[in-house]
Design a protein around this nucleic acid. Sequence first.
DNA 1: ATGGTAGCTGGGCTA
Length: 273
Amino acid sequence: MMPGPNARLATWNVESIRARHDQVITWVEANEPDVLAMQETRCGSRLFPRKAFIDLGYELVIHGGESGHGGVAFAVRDGGECAVDTSVRSIDLGIPGAVSPLDEPRSISITWRHLRLHSIYAPNGQKVGTQAHRVKLAWFSLLRQWLQLEREDHPHVIVLGDLNIAPMDVDVWDPRRYRMRNLTSPPEREAFRALMEDGLVDVVRHHYGDAAAFTWWNRRSDFYETDRGWRLDHVLTDAETASLVTIVRVDRAERQKPNSTDHAPVLVELALA
DNA sequence: ATGGTAGCTGGGCTA
């Protein structure tokens, strides 16, 4: 339980923590992340299955409603008696001041060690041209402002989550077919690029180079079996933190398990002093 | 451009 110089952080859209409890706990036991950001937990703290996380030494921060969709959480490993303070501080559930329809439970922000961490679940957007798609773009505008404001107080930041945007052509199995569609449309990619312009680094893309790193495969039909995927789950950091990243792994083997969530977890390791 | 499935709910929405 001693956090060494290396920190392991992961993000995973679990698509209902109640339905995926055993898969997630098994993965956590095997990979021992210091921090796991979860999305699409689909329940609030009342129904969240906490026990196995607590028994493994994790503290939970939960933000979810009773609507049965959305929802995010953090599981943070207890640092025990070590000298480094690994407590969770300054918790923000959602984006402060957000009003309907931008106030759904889609983010948690915490301070951990010297880092400001965000677990983010962006609106899906459904289809270009719909109200849901316009809400998605408005939500990204709000997220950008929130992250800008946060960085004034916390220069070291890691955004972990399902942003529901495949930012580049290499991030979609058939880029020409999907260029003008939900998850890949120009205004969505512009919203993603705006976060980069604010100084965030796409560390998964950086480490995979030009190779595909899909994190989501539609569960309908044989999209996984035929590797027709999208890269929707992201880890974005400030430049200095990006320089500390030693390992990036999309654990796509999780996706092929029976009754799996439709997303693969993404794991990063940082060399922290 | 479409269809295909899954979870939460108790019909239809979200994804």
